[in-house]
Amino acid sequence: MNILSLRFIFLLLLPAVIFLNCQLAMAGHDSVLELIHAADQPFDNMQIESAYQLPVKTVQSKESYQGGAFRVLARKDDIGRYRCSVCHTKKKSQARDGALIAHGDIRINHGQGENELSCIECHDRQDRDFLVDMEGKKIDFDHSYQLCGQCHFRPKRDWLGGAHGKRVTYWAGERVVMNCTSCHNPHSPAFKTKMPETYSLPLDE
């Protein structure tokens, strides 16, 4: 073997040696991605006993996420004058200033231009205690995600999985997530501009 072939072998081995050294420098533990890929068994979230008992009313969702069933925050209790059918009857209303004591203050700012929504596109014209989707299916106020999702299907897909919206208080325990209407005003769903809650001091440069 002459000196040239030795040099050739050395050059071949050099990248391998450098690679191994880099590996050693990172050694000691697995990277996060390796740990994540290795973890394919579902975690028993119910084992964490402190993660129970929310002081809020929830309902079982009618759809499921990757871990199965989950719960959403109830909505009906937050609607000031639910049940709507108390006033919305076939009879003509006799109350003076009825629009003022009811919900005459609601301004719809949902949908743009020609596509601006009107009340009856979401509220059932026949049965005011329910919402209604484009196919005429009645939807409970507690399950408004079924209604919102017919247009906002991407946010809904993310919401089901957990990339949109948020869980209530706990990351463990039974999955309880906020409803669409917990954060968005259905009549004007965009977030408002406001002053920030606090401020940060300048970084020292």
Binding site: Q66, D158, G161, G162, G165
Partner: peptide, 23 residues
Amino acid sequence: PTGSRVFGNLLDPDSEIRFVLRN
């Protein structure tokens, strides 16, 4: 208030954070 922050168990394939990383 906007749900921009997702927190969870990386070792649980059903967790929200794993959904974000996958999708």
